[in-house]
């Protein structure tokens, strides 16, 4: 075990996993919120675009998206983030993890918005609030409460799904696990360590989510 820590960049791999998770979570949140707003907007064209987005990205396997990005978009169409192979794979992983999970973030937010009684949206409009004011003042603050649980599930899934990036050669923990297993043979210890890393990353998120939804619930 100690030998492995010396011969392989374990900390670097963990750090890559954390980076993938954080950057993709930010990207997914930004894109997901925009798509959610499109899906509840009064403009039919935007609603249609939002719906298509969710249907496409939610129903395509992440592995397919990643392979398609590196092989299809990068090699064939020449859309590269970087000339360096590893860097390019890394950024495509962030992009695809963001786009994929944005569909789930969008649906989590939308289910939250649907928990707000429609009458409140009408009341907001009838005192003269614009669409964006109704959204920011009335709908989203309450939607967030209903969305906490599905959002937390999405972020946990996202953290675990970063392992798929190994498929396109990103050296995150899963990539490292693959490499070590190939070179040294399967070892229980290293599997256990990888599993622990994910427990350490995801567990606090679940605890935080539970306490947050409890805190938001009392305010009513």
């Amino acid at each position: 075990m100690g030998e492995l820590l010396k011969n392989y960049d374990v900390w670097g791999a963990i750090w890559t996993t954390i980076q993938l998770a954080v950057l993709s979570a930010i990207g997914a949140t930004v894109i997901g919120t925009i798509v959610a707003i499109m899906r509840v907007s009064p403009v039919a064209v935007l609603r249609g675009l939002g719906t298509s987005y969710v249907n496409i990205f939610r129903n395509t396997p992440l592995t397919v998206l990643l392979v398609m990005s590196v092989l299809g978009l990068a090699f064939i169409l020449g859309l590269s983030f970087s000339d360096d192979f590893a860097r390019n794979a890394y950024w495509w992983a962030v992009a695809m993890l963001s786009l994929y999970h944005a569909a789930f973030i969008c649906e989590a937010l939308r289910s939250g918005i649907n928990t707000v009684p429609a009458g409140q949206a009408e009341a907001a409009r009838s005192i003269g609030l614009t669409f964006s004011q109704s959204l920011s003042q009335v709908l989203l603050p309450q939607a967030f409460r209903g969305a906490v649980a599905p959002l937390v599930s999405t972020y946990i899934a996202l953290i675990k799904n970063t392992t798929v990036a190994a498929v396109i050669g990103v050296t995150d923990i899963a990539g490292l696990l693959q490499e070590i297993t190939e070179n040294e043979g399967a070892q229980l210890g290293i599997f256990f360590m990888v599993a622990m890393v994910f427990v350490v990353l995801t567990l606090p998120l679940g605890v935080f989510g539970t306490s947050l939804s409890r805190r938001l619930a009392v305010k009513r």
Partner: peptide
């Protein structure tokens, strides 16, 4: 009819 006050 249903008041529709902003609950938060």
């Amino acid at each position: 009819q249903s008041f529709n006050l902003f609950a938060h």
